[in-house]
Nucleic acid binder design. Structure first.
Lengths: 342, 342
DNA sequence: CTGTTAGCGCTTTCAG
DNA sequence: CTGAAAGCGCTAACAG
């Protein structure tokens, strides 16, 4: 009873209506020059017979897949799931298909994902790079074929590809300046892999703010980790062992900041009195934890939408456009964790 | 300079090596019966010429896409992003491609997603239903074609399709019983659309626990909403207007529970003394909020993996197997929000 | 072990 | 406005 029935093709429709497959093909699209009447008959028959166009055949013929690929380091992070939701929204609105894979922060896997996407003949690619991805040679093949590739958040330094990102330097500069204004003189930054633009920029913004305020930069006060909640705990433990405690902590990721802060609180430190705190991302956690965490708001959903929109635009107007980066806004969200009432 | 170069096909390789395309095709796979030597020459040439198999052509020929489709209500929820990460992990391990779309809780969009998936000739489909999806007729076409469809979390009542889920009835029964044991006598349940198995089962589990403990069921104490954080606020406002306050609140979603709890706390109520609280899902928020929220732990990543694994299994062994539901474990996580020290 | 042939389902000239 | 025919790139018989 469950035999994989024969597919309904345009030939079946053609036969039934005693017309040619070519006409059916035309009728199903809005091709110029098709009798209104036959068109209606075709559409009716298609509906009745349960016809569904075979996208392989049509893609093969058209050399166009209508598929957008996305490669991200990790699907299950607050930021990424927001970004992907934004991408999906745009892609489905444009009647395109979305294929997704994750590199799990592994460069080898990233290369594999790219190859799979290439075989799938995607029409465009959105990428947020894995931790250690410096080289972007594995995306050059797309360019050679004329397939647009756009990076977002974790972008490529290769100016050949456009990237959507926020001004991480400026955001970090603002956070650090704010902490200094609250009286902090010994600010620790917990950040991530310096191969990534986002973390390198955040470190530089921090350094610049220190310099501009006459505070010497102390490399001892920079901790580079994976920024996971577990890393936050480790960072707190290391801090508790320091001879001289910092009076401000700027963790470039909220989840890491929150777990770090909790350990320090349990150890008896008062936030923000003993140590002022700031994170990055405006994770929902930040407005639940006590005291609420100062952070940088940075809309993933919107970034996904913008990236997808730009990509889709290039799909339809492939005329050579100089690749340019797009800078999205961000905002410093000041909350109690860094506010020292004077 | 960026002309979309001609694709390299097996014919190009064949011509170069003076052999037939069929041999090249065989050589590229591990088809039985191919000269080791020619195979090596083929692989070398392919690599050198930058050949990438065209999956449309091969899919068209094979009537097999190696694509798994996923339709979920919303990509950007903690649970869903976990589940999707688990699915992706399994799918990519099996060397399949994943296409994803979201129904945004809209039945019409869900139908559209299903049609798009159908056109894309996916080999298997994973679905978590939209809020109002009762009817699953739009998935019957897959069955007719022999494409396996498996539901997860928000499953179908149609026993024709297998579903992966947890025992929502039992979990709710446990939560409610726990609240009763803590001395609650007037427990409010905030839950979601009763068309969905997950929420209907949670309500039934709650009712059963009341009955088993001799507490009369009061329909006034059941509030059905979308369970968003905003809904949590509204629920709190409605509670504050009640003549007689509940002494326990069981919200079937953590985010909703958290925002509800915050409003009540701001109104001066003590948790758990005045009102004991429990949520559902074990969202990271629950162990940040004060007091920590009692909840039900329920692993999205694992559910995604199990669903994908089962689907992939059926792909390769399409022999008729009676569809059966798979029940995954859950655990009651008791925290301070419901613990009344006696 | 390898070549020939046919065709998956669709689109698109080119003629009518 | 419609039909005939060719071909996108690959693979599975079927012969050799």
């Amino acid at each position: 009873m469950e035999k994989p029935e024969k597919e309904v093709t345009i030939y079946d429709i053609a036969k039934k209506l005693n017309i040619s497959a070519a006409t059916v093909s035309r009728g199903l699209k809005d091709r110029a020059g098709t009798n209104k009447d036959t068109k209606k008959r075709i559409l009716d028959a298609a509906l009745e017979m349960g016809y569904q166009s075979n996208s392989f055949a049509s893609n093969l013929r058209n050399k166009r897949s209508n598929i957008i690929g996305v490669i991200v380091p990790k699907l299950n992070s607050v930021f990424m799931s927001q970004a992907i939701a934004g991408i999906e929204q745009q892609v489905s609105e444009a009647n395109l298909t979305l294929i997704i894979s994750q590199s799990l922060e592994d460069v080898k896997k990233e290369v594999g994902c790219a190859e799979a996407m290439y075989s799938n003949r995607i029409d465009g690619l959105l990428v947020s790079l894995a931790y250690e991805s410096k080289d972007t040679a594995h995306f050059e093949s797309f360019t050679r074929r004329g397939t647009p590739v756009i990076f977002f958040d974790r972008i490529s330094e290769n100016r050949h590809f456009p990237g959507i990102h926020i001004d991480n330097f400026k955001a970090a500069y603002e956070v650090t300046t704010h902490l200094i204004q609250q009286g902090c003189k010994r600010i620790l930054q917990a950040t991530g892999n310096q191969l990534q633009n986002v973390y390198a920029d955040r470190l530089n913004g921090y350094k610049q703010a220190l310099a501009d305020n006459g505070i010497p930069y102390d490399p001892q006060l920079v901790m580079v980790t994976g920024l996971s909640p577990e890393d936050g705990i480790k960072i707190a433990e290391r801090i508790l062992l320091m001879k001289e405690l910092p009076d401000g902590i700027f963790a470039t990721n909220d989840q890491c900041a929150v777990s770090c802060m909790q350990v320090l609180q349990k150890a008896g430190l008062k936030i923000p009195e003993d140590i002022a705190f700031a994170g990055f991302n405006n994770d929902p956690l930040t407005s639940i934890i006590e005291p609420n965490l100062t952070t940088v708001n940075y809309k993933g959903y919107e970034m996904g939408q913008v990236a997808a929109k730009l990509l889709i635009e290039r799909l339809y107007t492939p005329e050579k456009r100089s690749p340019a980066n797009v800078l999205l806004g961000h905002e410093l969200v000041v909350r109690e964790s860094s506010l020292r009432k004077k």
